[in-house]
Nucleic acid binder design. Structure first.
Lengths: 169, 169
DNA sequence: CAAGATTGAGTGCTCAATCTTT
DNA sequence: AAAGATTGAGCACTCAATCTTG
């Protein structure tokens, strides 16, 4: 893959229609490289999880939030916003997880409109099974290429960025 | 959004089923924050582009590669691998772009099996229209939060990582 | 058979509309 | 009207099978 010869997201001195002096080219370059790495790593991880008949990343994320929530329960409203999925995607993903008996849907005592999601035993098992594979993939495809200091930098900057970025909607 | 209270991808001292001393927690933390920022930024950018009736990121990426290719032409085979999309996704996206007259499909002289994609004038216009919006979004949601040195670091490390990562299967 | 590209079936995400309860 | 959650229609991605040419 030639990232320098052919551009992805304007890997050239000039913007598509000419010189654009008012932007930092670095910003676009950095963003482009992040996009490329992200897509490759995610694709590889998803393939590996699928191959081993394990839950996909989106489900993993949900199950893990539940695992560490008080009583292993969480309101739909709260999951939404903590999680990478959008509201409707979360709703559909929870349907699948409930169908597969990995989570249980419960009525909310305080608010009849509300929905409580509880981690089912099978959900915890699914989490345990997926972790070694996921962990190995993160290490091999990502972590192993960075030093401790570099990882500290990424954690610090990107968690700050995440807090500033718009969550849902 | 509470990334510290409830975990996304194991934001806790322990792995789901107990202590796992053999991995660097930093790796998972860094990966998690990248995932979150990526999903939020991409979602925001896509929404903004859509709102302005501009091409989505996947199309933008393809058109831009063509814009800087010799004669504004590129073989399908070559586009695949330079681009974020997978082979079948690229095929379908090119169908849409050809349908919209943003690119033209041509026969390949050297190899009858081959396919040449050419950037059409309307495609170049689409690129020009989308850039200011895209550029602004990258700046506001991403670039503005990093110093020059930090961006240099990201470009350096992630472009090196991209070269090491598996491209298309 | 391998390489280049497309296609069918299935899955899952998107927005916007909807329904229920406050 | 607003908040909480679901749903319908549409779109775009995935893998695997297919077709064509070398």
């Amino acid at each position: 893959v030639q990232h320098n010869e052919y551009c992805c997201l304007c890997n050239n001195i000039r913007a598509p229609w000419g010189v654009d002096r008012s932007f930092r080219r670095k910003e676009v370059d950095a963003w482009r490289e992040l996009l490329i790495c992200h897509s490759r790593i995610v694709r590889a991880v998803e393939r590996e999880l699928e191959k081993e008949h394990l839950v996909p990343l989106s489900s993993y994320d949900i199950l893990l939030h539940l695992r560490y929530a008080p009583n292993k329960r969480r309101r739909f409203r709260d999951l939404n916003g903590e999680i990478v999925l959008s509201r409707s995607a979360l709703s559909r993903c929870l349907d699948r997880l409930a169908e597969a008996k990995l989570v249980t849907k419960l009525d909310c005592p305080e608010d009849p409109r509300g929905l409580i999601i509880e981690l089912a035993p099978a959900g915890e098992t699914a989490l345990k099974s997926a972790w070694p594979i996921y962990r190995r993939q993160i290490h091999e495809l990502f972590g192993t290429h960075f030093s401790d200091k570099e990882l500290d930098f990424i954690v610090k900057k990107f968690s700050a960025l995440a807090r500033v970025l718009p969550g849902e909607l």
